[in-house]
Design a protein around this nucleic acid. Structure first.
Lengths: 331, 331
DNA sequence: ATGAAAGCGCTAACAT
DNA sequence: ATGTTAGCGCTTTCAT
């Protein structure tokens, strides 16, 4: 491995001079010397050793990323946004797929907080994430993305309540009267808030809330599919389904199709997330879009600012707008 | 930050004793001492500093992961397989989404080879990846996944030629006579080989190869959709489409539907990859499944074995079986 | 403007 | 069985 000493020798200077040339803060180095050093660096293809840097300076130029479920189509665009911004600014990414498992999270955070990374981007925040709150209290740079619980922590989110409200409203304004909702895990505030938005919109339109029309995610294999089927087969079936994510919307579409109803003539379906394939479905899915890539990108930017001491004095929560993308599953 | 000295002090022993207790190779430590140390570790919540370890031992317990496109639904299951195995064996993951950009790859590899990681799992191998070949030549542990070009490098793959052959054969045996193929970028051997398998199966069945039926991926926005449309509208339209990945199969289904034909009555569609949503499509997509999670998992296992000096003397290429999953888009 | 030296936290060779 | 010590590569005083 090429180290700073070898570069120094080649350039005929001391290691500290090389360090000064390469260091971020420009230091007093004669122009001529600087050139010699840079040349040696080039010839030797020298790249500084991360660990030595990390050990010495406390800085690692790495950030840790916690993702609850990488197979959930919502996360890859977020990851890409984070990765791109981080890379362009010289940061590496340590990835952990926590699988919604709190022990995995704790272990990872514990390991990484020992100086392995400069900060954390966390997509897996839950109500029980006291280890994340501790991180924040310890003064370790943290930014939350997508999942947020009202803590005084920097975060990048959308307004799930309003998004749910608007989505439901859109369905109401399109002439639907009996609107079912497919709700995700209610321990996640993003689903709960979309659900609250749904209820508020109903109330606002003087439509009576009917909990027969509320379909909860279940853990079983085809549990959700069956639950939707049941509602569709009921005498007083819904004329629209608001699914709180696209994956559930797709399952809803499958059920609607299997029960012999047409989309959107008999039933409208509205999704949430605007995942990549939603526009390729048959029919193309109408859905609420959130700017996942930009959210990831901003999260990385905020975190790096915090790391560099340019963060806000008090944590700020950035709220992105959502947009209803009307395609062919709604009227 | 809690360091080994603080643990040593608390336990009333020297730092080396703590190191011995915590070290992988069991060393001579009195049972009593060991317990005292472990207790101190517990109380102080001590986790060793990665950088010091890395600097000292040359070992980092990190592996670098290169993914060409994280939004391609094929990769998250591979990543999950890698991540899970790596985590269970004490390894962290440094992620780079290379975006198919060779310079990003080179920079990342360059940075990481300076002792930042113990080895590489690479999903982004191409014909031009000489920087990867160099890595292998330098004796740095490398394992390739999914993309492979015949190099003497450890790899985990499927037999794309046979998979393409079998897929086409299945379509032929189901009574199809004019089978179109939607081919991905031919600079990627996995697509080229599936395509070769297609041609071989046709030949074997005495079906004349017609390049009117070969639809190539194009870069334009709706380029592929339009190309498929053209073929579907032609006088002598195909009775089946073999798409070389599920994403292309979904676009094919869209085109078939838009042109007013039924799947599978008028046209069969067969995909490749068995991505998560393929079974939820309308109709559910028949496809060639590859064990992505297991491939990732094995890749991590192989890499860690190599890192620990337990790798094979000569590189070995592990070939996983594929399976045709018959759902509702084929007869 | 540059060099020498100390030390970040850890492990392994050496000493006891 | 355990302690002492040197050194991994780097940056940052301090000295010149």
């Amino acid at each position: 491995m090429i180290n700073i000493k070898m570069v120094a020798e080649k350039a005929g200077v001391s290691a500290s001079t090389v360090s000064r040339v390469l260091g971020s803060k420009q230091a007093y180095v004669a122009k001529e010397t600087r050139e010699k050093v840079l040349e040696a660096v080039q010839e030797l293809q020298y790249t500084p050793n991360m660990h030595a840097k990390g050990l010495r300076g406390g800085r690692t130029n790495s950030i840790a990323l916690l993702i609850p479920d990488i197979e959930n189509e919502m996360f890859p665009p977020i990851i890409k946004g984070i990765e791109t911004y981080a890379r362009k600014n010289g940061y590496n990414l340590m990835l952990s797929c926590t699988n919604e498992d709190i022990d995995i999270e704790k272990n990872f955070i514990n390991k990484m907080s020992q100086g392995a990374v400069d900060g954390f981007v966390i997509c897996s925040m839950t109500q029980n994430s006291d280890h994340v709150r501790q991180l924040q209290r310890d003064g370790i740079p943290v930014v939350l993305v997508a999942r947020y619980y009202g803590d005084k922590i920097n975060a990048v989110v959308i307004d799930n309540f309003h998004a749910g409200y608007d989505a439901t409203n859109y369905l109401i304004n399109s002439g639907n009267k009996r609107i079912a909702i497919v709700v995700g895990r209610t321990d996640l505030s993003l689903y709960r808030e979309r659900y609250e938005g749904y209820k508020a919109a109903l109330k606002n339109a003087n439509i009576i809330y009917d909990d027969q029309l509320v379909i909860h995610e279940t853990s079983g294999a085809n549990g959700l599919y069956k639950a939707i089927m049941n509602v569709l087969k009921s005498a007083d079936r819904p004329d629209a389904i608001f699914a709180t994510n696209d994956h559930k919307a797709i399952i809803s579409m499958q059920a609607v199709s299997d029960v012999g109803l047409r989309i959107p003539e008999d039933i409208s379906v509205l999704g949430f997330d605007n995942i990549k394939i939603s526009k390729l479905l048959n029919p193309p899915l109408s859905t609420v879009s959130q700017p996942l890539y930009d959210m990831g990108s901003l999260a990385a930017k905020k975190l790096i600012n915090i790391i560099n001491g340019n963060g806000p004095v008090e944590p700020v929560v950035d709220v992105f707008d959502t947009e209803i993308i009307v395609r062919k599953t709604t009227k």
